[in-house]
């Protein structure tokens, strides 16, 4: 069980010689992503405020980079890559489905409540 590590990331584009080397490689990747996020967060470039699909482009970039980070933490640090597909799907698909569901419901509702305030049915600016 111990030696059955899969040592490729990026679908085989990068191959590591040992598990330890893969760990350091993934650390470098995660650090670069975090650095990019922080720099974008500090400087907030003006192109980032364009709206894409109802959200600022910059926010899309942050969320996508976060999911990329989450993927590598789960797959390589938690060794999800080395588990059998059954366990992987039982954990990951369940989580993703339920999380997407609650996000959709609550954000939809939040936007609705905002409209109720915005149209002036309830006054809170005093």
């Amino acid at each position: 069980m111990a030696d059955a590590h899969k040592l490729e990331i990026f679908r085989g584009l990068v191959k590591f010689k040992s598990n330890t080397q893969k760990i350091w490689g993934v650390l470098i990747l995660l650090s670069i992503i975090t650095a990019v996020e922080v720099l974008l967060g500090i400087y907030k470039p003006s192109w980032g405020t364009n709206m894409v699909l109802g959200m600022k482009l910059l926010n899309w970039i942050f969320i996508i980079l976060t999911i990329v980070k989450a993927y590598y933490i789960t797959w390589d640090f938690m060794h999800m890559r080395d588990e059998v597909p059954g366990l992987r799907r039982a954990v990951v698909w369940t989580g993703i489905f339920l999380i997407c569901y609650i996000i959709f419901i609550l954000l939809q509702e939040g936007g609705y409540v905002f409209n109720v305030y915005d149209k002036g049915f309830i006054k809170r600016d005093f």
Binding site: L87, V91, G95, L98, L106, L107, E109, G110, G111, Y117
Partner: peptide, 30 residues
């Protein structure tokens, strides 16, 4: 395996909190 399923349930708890944060933020988005 049970650690994995505990983590799954804990992840759902955290996403519930974060989604609630998103709800409040969308409510006062401006």
């Amino acid at each position: 395996m049970m650690m994995w399923f505990f983590i799954l349930s804990d992840a759902l708890t955290f996403s519930g909190f974060l989604a609630a944060y998103g709800f409040s933020r969308f409510k006062f988005i401006d």
